[in-house]
Amino acid sequence: MEIENITKKLQLVFQTLFDDETIIITNDLSAKDIQEWDSLNNIMLFVEIEKIFNIHFRTSEITKLQNVGELIRRITHKLSDSVSMANS
């Protein structure tokens, strides 16, 4: 899946979860920047992302996330892993 496509889907997840259609996600965006992004919503964020991309995160990936850039990298990585597994 293209990065733009991932970003687009992810942006929609953020907008729905935080109930704010003006959120534009950038690589630097982090929990500090969104007031509602607390530990509970962080979990819900991952629950949504796992469902939408059909991927799975480790516990530590959920707790140690730095920013959206890292999130996109991890999603891309997991998706390409699953594609290469499917092709092998």
Partner: peptide, 12 residues
């Protein structure tokens, strides 16, 4: 994971 992360008894 949900138990360790937030003490949720079952999958959301």
């Amino acid at each position: 994971r949900m138990w360790y992360l937030g003490k949720f008894a079952f999958s959301p």
